[in-house]
Amino acid sequence: MQRETTFIHLTDLHVGTPDDDHLFSDTTETLREVLDLVATVAPQPEFIIASGDLTNRGDAESFRMLKRIIDEKVDVPVIYALGNHDTRPGFYEGMEVETADPDAPYDHDRIVGGIHIVTLDSSTPGLIGGAIDPEQFEWLERTLDSHPDLPKLIVVHHPPALGEAPDVAHWRTIHFPQSQRFAEMLKGRNIIGILSGHIHHDRVSVWHGIPVIVGTGQHAATDILRTDILRMVRGASFGIGTIRPSGLTMAFVPLPSDRAELNTYPLEMLLERAVPVAAE
């Protein structure tokens, strides 16, 4: 019988160097503060998920900074996904991950605490929106079949598109037709949850029967009351997950914040840099 498993969900760490004038908050200090709080969690988490936008610029030095902080403060496995702010070459070099192709998607899986954790790289170089390539779907199918008896967590930076048609704000999600294929592939696979980031606010959805957990992350929060622009305000949180035989529970731990405005972005700019919506 499956035992209870506790884990931590981090996302959108946006670790950067002091000369990054597009960071708007001290993300390295926030990450250290969050990891100090994580150290107080009981029962002790068995692993940490970091679901993308690990760095703000994707450069190798920022990844090296992230690695130093994690090595200093964390003594459990950390599962990383890549987001649109990351770069694959920067990640492989800075995190000292061996690869034959520094431009290849960082797709991987791991079993921790009896949970099969499957991580997809939804980043699309140069664009904001998410995508899953045909070769990645082939890898995903093989990987899901490799441990059919184990409950599975899916980690992917961009959440799937939730609606029944492409959303006008499609830069927020995995490209719509690929989201549909994703849903079909996950059916009947003992998926206990999908962990994502990207949109910078805490959100829980049930998508084709699967909980989709999105975290605010450690960089900034989206003001979801403003729909005419993307308004970023001061704010951060992390998630504490518990996996039981009955399913997944997520609790969110917000850091105190005055919600002061940090920056705004016009929606037109975001749409231009999303994965284009096809004719369908």
Rank of each mutant, 00 (worst) to 15 (best):
R142A: 15
D26F: 09
K67N: 14
H198N: 10
K67P: 07
H147F: 12
D228Y: 06
P256K: 08
G16Q: 07
Q44G: 13
P105M: 06
A260E: 13
R259H: 09
K73E: 11
K152A: 04
T242S: 14
A100N: 12
G197H: 06
G130K: 03
V156D: 03
H200L: 04
Y80V: 03
A169R: 14
S122R: 00
S257E: 05
D36I: 11
L225C: 11
V277P: 04
D107G: 11
H116C: 06
P266I: 00
Y106N: 02
D21K: 10
L255T: 05
I199R: 01
I8W: 02
G247Y: 03
L31I: 07
E164I: 12
V155R: 09
H9Q: 15
T264H: 11
D20K: 01
F137V: 02
E72D: 15
H157Y: 08
S146E: 08
S179P: 00
H22A: 14
P177S: 08
V112I: 15
R88W: 10
A183N: 14
G209L: 05
I213Q: 06
V277W: 05
D167M: 12
V168D: 14
D20Q: 10
E46G: 13
G217N: 01
R3T: 15
A100E: 14
Y92I: 09
P18Y: 10
Y80F: 15
P148C: 08
H208E: 15
G163C: 10
I192W: 13
I240Y: 03
F91Y: 10
T119M: 07
L140Q: 02
A251M: 14
A161G: 04
L195E: 08
L230R: 03
S122P: 03
E164P: 03
